[in-house]
Write a protein that binds this DNA or RNA. Structure first.
Length: 841
RNA sequence: GGGCGUUUAGCUCAGUGGUAGAGCGUUUCGUUGACAUCGAAAAGGUCACAGGUUCGAUCCCUGUAACGCCCACCA
């Protein structure tokens, strides 16, 4: 034996020994008699799948260690034990990582072909996944690789989509046009959980607004105001409630309604707010309550649109400055509060200000899903460790809001919904051209141009909808092919495009006058001739109906036609699911739950799973959703226990981050000090759910411990000889063995109660300060001077204690203990086994 | 604005209704025939503060303070 324990020589060899044994796979585990006595016959942990967009960090090392301890403990006890590994495609997170990569290469996803981008990202994640798997192996993870899952495996995708369809059928999914949290950089909407708050010093502008003065932080959104709101009990403004007031704005005078809403705080500002339902979450709510018009003035690139008049095209901040400047010029700006701090909603990834804009998105109605989850947690059917988190999760569930699951990225599971293209066409007709009903038949007959006194602003190539002005129905659509500017006097009456209507110029003049009574029409009046192509609509549609569009069709397969308008032109919704919509279903999907009802055997054997061990910061993102969706789909809880671990901080209690340069790479330190040492350093002194610190000093300390048990073994080996005589066990031996039993009991108790730090510390302390420092020291004289029988007794006691000690320690320090166990078996000439399934425990 | 957590040795943190614990660090001594990545020992704490319950409180209760975290629509 070497003088020291050298992890490098051992780890790879041992891991492959375990893998070859096949015992990571529960199907290969021996059926023990003990099993029948156990309360729970099986034990299962679904690994929180690491994101396949990088390599493992110290947090991963912590969860691997915690879960591996539980798994090894259960397996040694004789339970049918499964630890199912996986990887997460991590939708938006990976998209952000990949966007950065593209940026470095001078590329952008917005200029790439969807399929090609997807393929590249797929390869990127597969590469990362491979690296991560090897890293998990290095950390000693005794998981069943044969059952490994990826969130983009075809069967997973299918089942995720089935869940969406089922929820849709049952009214739990709806498509809503709402003000969403939009990230201008990433060009996607985010859910409420992905919104970060950042305190910012801004300005609060007080401006004249009709008879009021009101305060706003966003004057540039004023073009989207569709009401003024005050508190219903505010005496100052009571007389205005329900009335329309005239306001002098930057783009002229306009009239606006005053409403009363309790959301308005009379104490803040002047107690009056302008309501911009399109661009503020609170205003959107008020808008819904009062059925206000939603007027979008900011587009998805963060620029003002045509509703902003001369400010159109400006970016938000630019427009704000300009608007304030103009308000000042017009004397509409009362004052500016420069010391105004507020919590700005920013993108949790890029920290840029989020732009609330109205967009149609898919939502999950969460209240009906949360209800049974709340009941279950309240009844204590799920044990949450640490317990105080129970309150936190309950509070969140009780105040849950509907969940936007649409993401405008390509990396993820495509939403199985189809959009009627005809709808799209109609929608893209921002332009409509009205025709008197008497003219409509001529168009059907082939009339290919129209004369207009008014400049409609159409340009060549514009798509237009053709509307019957009297019926207000769209009867067709087409494209502008030519625009001519003429005058009434220069119009060619013989032009066949117009022949059927007017025979003389007088008749023409009269007709123009009739249709435009307020205008003074002469022969010199300009006339616009719009030439177009025409296609008849399949069905007459109200313009309103068109703009509200055919409802999307929810289906995995592409439907033959749109059930609303029978159009066969359908395209798939380009959006993908929020990653958590799929990972929220992870426990039952990985175990082979099937929509068809023909679940895999694993589902019967291992669901509900035993423990969900994960980071406490994804309690809402993941744990709460797994509980809701698990109950919804399987009618059972996805797991019986939730164990939440905290963050790993550096020795100065700082969060580890690449920019601070204080990151401890778990694989790096494992390389240097051995995996076992890193594992112990992560576990000892780490109470459930609390942040803990790690330093190289600490790891070094446990490396020393590995050396210690190694040298205990070496000492015993050096003194070993085959025991031939019947040993005479002394009372001291008996006492020592009793103490060992007591220690084992304590350790077991702590492991069962998820108190891993206690179990680890007790084991550590027993081995070093009781076994090595006391028992071995006391035994030394007996080994050297004692008679044969006494020596045999001493030796046997030592071997027993060592064997039991390494069993106890195995879940924590699997490599060194296994290596020692193998060595001990060699020494005693025993048949080789592995500690993985050694009994009893 | 709500909620939660923490406060124990120089540092990092355990822990318990009955005289305070570990690791690291410090000091002294020992050991080179298991291990110097070692052993033996020592110093070091009004258990944040103020009340209360109790025979007894670091622990249970109430309040205060500091620090940290989470949630929340104050324009």
């Amino acid at each position: 034996m070497d003088k020291r324990y050298i992890p490098d020589k051992v780890e790879e060899k041992i891991y492959s020994l375990w893998e070859k044994s096949g015992f990571f796979n529960p199907d290969n585990l021996p059926k023990t008699k003990k099993l029948t006595k156990l309360k729970a016959k099986s034990f299962c942990i679904i690994m929180p799948p690491p994101n396949a967009n990088g390599s493992l960090h110290i947090g991963h090392a912590l969860f691997v260690t915690l879960e591996d301890i539980m798994i090894r403990f259960a397996r040694m006890k004789g339970q049918k034990t499964l630890w199912l590994p996986g990887a997460d495609h991590a939708g938006f997170e990976t998209q952000v990582v990949f966007d950065k990569k593209l940026e470095k290469e001078g590329r952008s996803r917005f200029k790439m072909d969807r399929k090609k981008l997807w393929q590249e990202m797929y390869e990127f994640t597969q590469e990362n996944k491979k690296t991560m798997e090897n890293q998990l192996r290095k950390l000693g993870a005794s998981c069943d690789w044969s059952r490994e899952k990826f969130t983009l495996d075809p069967d997973i995708i299918k089942e995720v989509q089935h869940t969406f369809i089922k929820m849709h059928k049952e009214g739990l999914i709806y498509r809503g046009l709402r003000t969403v949290n939009w990230c201008v950089k990433h060009q996607t909407a985010l859910s409420g959980l992905e919104v970060k708050r950042k305190e910012e010093k801004g300005k609060l502008y007080y401006m004249k607004y009709g008879p009021f003065t009101l305060a706003t932080a966003r004057p540039e959104t004023k073009f989207g105001d569709t009401a003024i709101a005050v508190h219903p009990n505010d005496k100052r403004y009571k007389k205005y409630i329900g009335k329309e007031v005239e306001v002098q704005g930057l783009l002229g005078k306009f009239k606006i309604k005053v409403i009363a809403d309790k959301a308005v705080d009379p104490e803040f500002g002047t107690g009056v707010i302008k309501v911009t339902p399109a661009h503020d979450p609170l205003d959107a709510e008020i808008g819904t309550r009062h059925n206000l018009e939603v007027k979008q003035v900011i587009d998805r690139y963060g620029k003002l649109n045509e509703h902003a008049g001369r400010y159109a095209g400006m970016k938000v901040m630019e427009a704000r400055e300009k608007v304030v400047e103009d308000l000042k010029k017009k004397g509409l700006l009362v004052k500016v509060d420069e010391n105004y701090t507020h919590n700005l909603a920013v993108c949790f990834k890029c920290e840029r200000t989020l732009e609330p804009i109205p967009l149609p998105q898919w939502y999950v109605k969460t209240k009906p899903l949360a209800k049974p989850a709340i009941e279950t947690i309240e009844k204590g059917k799920i044990k949450i460790i640490p317990t105080h988190r129970k309150k936190v999760i309950l509070h969140w569930l009780k105040n849950i809001e509907d969940w936007n699951i649409s993401r405008q990225i390509i990396w993820g599971i495509r939403i199985p919904a189809w959009i009627c293209e005809k709808t799209n066409e109609a929608k893209s007709y921002k332009l409509t051209m009205g025709f008197h009903e008497s003219v409509v038949p001529q168009i059907f007959k082939g009339k290919i141009a129209t004369w207009r006194i008014r400049d409609h602003g159409f340009k060549k190539g514009d798509a237009v909808a053709f509307e019957n002005s009297q019926e207000e129905k769209i009867f067709g659509h087409g494209t502008i092919t030519k625009v001519e500017k003429l005058t009434v006097g220069t119009m060619n009456l013989k032009d066949k495009t117009h022949y059927a209507t007017y025979k003389t110029r007088d008749e023409l003049l009269r007709a123009f006058k009739k249709h435009n009574p307020d205008k003074n029409i002469t022969l010199q009046t300009p006339v616009f001739a719009y030439h177009y192509t025409f296609k008849k609509a399949n069905k007459l549609m109200k313009l309103k109906a068109i703009s509200s569009s055919c409802p999307p069709i929810v289906s995995i397969e592409k439907p033959k036609q749109c059930p609303s308008c029978k159009s066969e032109k359908l395209s798939q919704d380009p959006d993908v699911f929020d990653t958590w919509f799929s990972s929220g279903q992870w426990p039952y999907l990985t175990l082979g739950f099937k929509n068809s009802g023909k679940h895999d055997k694993d589902f019967k054997d291992f669901y509900p799973t035993s423990v969900m061990e994960t980071a406490s910061d994804i309690l809402f993102f993941w744990v709460a959703r797994m509980i809701m969706m698990g109950i919804y789909r399987t009618k059972k809880l996805p797991f019986k226990n939730v164990y939440l671990h905290g963050l790993i901080l550096d020795k100065d209690k700082q969060k580890m981050s690449k920019s601070k340069g204080n990151v401890i790479n778990p694989l790096g330190v494992a390389e240097e000090y051995g995996t076992d040492a890193v594992r112990m350093a992560l576990i000892a002194g780490n109470t459930p759910g609390r942040n803990s610190t790690i330093s190289e000093d600490k790891i070094r300390g446990y490396r020393n411990f590995a050396t210690k048990i190694w040298n205990i073994t070496r000492f015993i080996s050096m003194n070993y000889e085959e025991i031939k005589t019947k040993p005479v066990i002394t009372p001291k031996d008996k006492k020592n063995l009793k103490q060992l039993e007591a220690t084992k009991k304590k350790v077991t108790k702590h492991l069962e109660k998820f108190e891993f730090h206690r179990a680890a510390e007790i084991t550590y302390h027993y081995i070093w300060h009781t076994f090595a420092d006391k028992i071995i020291e006391e035994t030394k004289p007996r080994l050297q001077n004692g008679d044969k029988k006494d020596k045999a007794a001493a030796l046997e006691t030592l071997i027993t204690i060592l064997t039991e000690s390494i069993k106890m320690l195995h879940p924590f320090m699997p490599y060194a203990t296994e290596e020692i166990f193998q060595h001990l078996q060699d020494l005693q000439g025993k048949k080789k086994k592995t500690l993985l399934i050694v009994e009893p425990w």
